[in-house]
Simulated scan of single mutants.
Amino acid sequence: MGKRPVLIGLTGNIACGKSTVARMLAEKGAYIIDADAIAHEVIRKGTPAYESILRRFGEEILGPDGEIDRRRLGAIVFRDPRAMQDLEAVVHPAVLEEIQRRVQACSQAPAIVIEAIKLIESGLAWACDTLWVVTCPEPEQIRRLVIERGFAEEEARIRVHAQPPQEEKIRHADVIIDNSGDLEMTRRQVERAWREWVDPCIHS
């Protein structure tokens, strides 16, 4: 029986740069499981989650194509913690099931990366071999949401403040990646963490 891949949990708050770090890990041969992308899939029209969300939030969350408009839905749940809980109760079980299926199906990569904003809160972090947290200062999060994702500044602040403080994630981290600088600075930190956590398993 061959060695199993190292299971890396990758998390961080909104606009801190999880996806940037995930792309760097993919370049090193890691298999990336993007929980946000899976969440897109499990709420598509015709799925059980779609029907449940529609019953809870109404047709005003739909786009012209009949699919759930995540921007509209986000405008509701980021302002209302109870609404967020209701949404997560529908979406999280379906996402967790698909993540587990993909982990079990992958055996060839040196590492599997589960990229998820709610990695710790969902309990998934404790199934991982190592937990990596990506950070950046709040003003930079807001700037990225405004410049790169087109949010109004007020909406960007609401989304940042709707999440638990970054310190709560950092407290559990094996690796902290500061993504407030340029890409080369981030890449150096990723390379160092890979050498510490993955290379010994590959070469043992």
Rank of each mutant, 00 (worst) to 15 (best):
L131Q: 04
L131F: 02
W132P: 05
W132V: 11
W132S: 03
V133I: 10
V133K: 00
V133Y: 06
V133N: 00
V134S: 05
V134E: 08
V134M: 08
V134I: 15
C136G: 09
P137I: 15
P137G: 09
P137S: 14
R143D: 08
R143Y: 06
R143T: 00
R144T: 03
V146L: 04
E148N: 15
E148L: 04
E148A: 13
R149W: 13
G150I: 09
F151S: 01
F151G: 01
F151Y: 15
A152W: 00
E154V: 07
E154N: 10
E155I: 09
E155R: 03
A156H: 02
R157C: 03
R157H: 10
I158D: 11
I158W: 09
I158Q: 09
I158C: 09
V160G: 07
H161C: 07
Q163D: 00
Q163H: 10
P165V: 10
P165H: 11
E167V: 04
E168S: 14
A173W: 05
D174G: 15
D174M: 13
D174Y: 03
V175G: 04
I176W: 13
I176K: 10
I177W: 12
I177Q: 04
D178Q: 04
D178L: 05
S180C: 10
S180G: 15
G181F: 11
D182Q: 11
D182I: 07
D182H: 06
